[in-house]
């Protein structure tokens, strides 16, 4: 079930380094939000903060609130494992589990959460692979290792794996950056379909992609190197691309940067 996501005055640190300052934004359910901005401005950092992956890094910490349907994922007593089960993530580089077959990769989340029922696992695997537009390509080699797929197929396998645990929100960190235009289009189509079931946040360096897939776009920027990254503006995608309120946004989008 798709849910609404709110960030309220989020500040993110790596040890003493203040990486992102004071981000507040709202992501409605069943929508796609794109994060754009120059390299190093903290897009990945914000994304990883949403599902508490940030704190995996030693010394990393977060201030502020991240609310999922009004409930703070950083609240006292909230288990980060539960949060990550509810908020799934797809990484920039495809990372299938090398010891597992294609099928096992897709249902790895369920299996490791203790689901044993073979029939259910097989059914979920098929559904997830269909959802990721990969079923037809792998249906007769489900028992082969996942590492044997092409890069684009591996990325879709990772999307299937994230979808299979049925999260409410799906975070995608530059899911197409290593892919050819055809795989990229396949994944963009997929994102528009996944919107029906999930709330999606996607980081991308590709303006056209942001314009094609997203409903709203958030522009992040760095005032100067060494300064924390910040959210410059967030608005409907058409508005951001047609007439942004901030000068920096317009410069970035039109390529007049710096």
């Amino acid at each position: 079930m798709a849910r609404r996501l709110d960030l309220e005055h989020v500040n993110i640190y790596y040890g003493n380094f203040h990486a992102v300052s004071d981000v507040s934004l709202m992501v409605p359910p069943h929508s796609v939000t794109a994060f754009i901005g120059p390299s190093g401005c903290g897009k990945s950092t914000v994304l990883r903060t949403i599902n508490r992956m940030h704190e995996v890094i030693p010394g990393a910490r977060v201030e502020g609130r991240v609310l999922l349907d009004g409930e703070d994922v950083y609240g006292p007593g909230v288990d980060p494992v539960d949060v990550r089960r509810t908020i799934g993530m797809v990484f920039q580089r495809p990372n299938p589990f090398p010891t597992m077959s294609i099928r096992d990769n897709v249902v790895a989340g369920l299996k490791l959460q203790g689901v044993k029922n073979k029939a259910k696992l097989n059914e979920t695997a098929e559904q997830a692979l269909r959802a990721a537009n990969l079923w037809d390509e792998v249906r007769d080699r489900l028992n082969k290792p996942g590492g044997g797929l092409s890069g684009g197929q591996q990325q879709r396998l990772c999307i299937a794996r994230a979808v299979a645990v049925a999260p409410d929100v799906l975070l995608m960190d530059e899911p197409c950056s290593a892919l050819d235009p055809i795989s990229t289009l396949a994944i963009e189509d997929l994102i528009s379909e996944l919107k029906r079931d999930f709330t999606i946040v996607i980081v991308t360096h590709n303006m056209q992609q942001a314009a094609r897939v997203s409903d709203q776009t958030a522009f992040f920027n760095l005032r100067a190197t060494g300064e924390p990254g910040q959210l410059v503006e967030i608005d409907q995608t058409q508005k951001i691309f047609a007439n942004p309120t901030q000068r920096a946004t317009e410069d970035y989008i039109t390529g007049r940067f710096g």
Partner: peptide, 28 residues
Amino acid sequence: PNDLREASYALGVPKWKTIVKIVIPTAL
């Protein structure tokens, strides 16, 4: 690779299970 550990955490798998089921088999 750390990627594998993160991929597992991101699926909502606890750390000990990630070690037993993902990390050790990869290094076995």
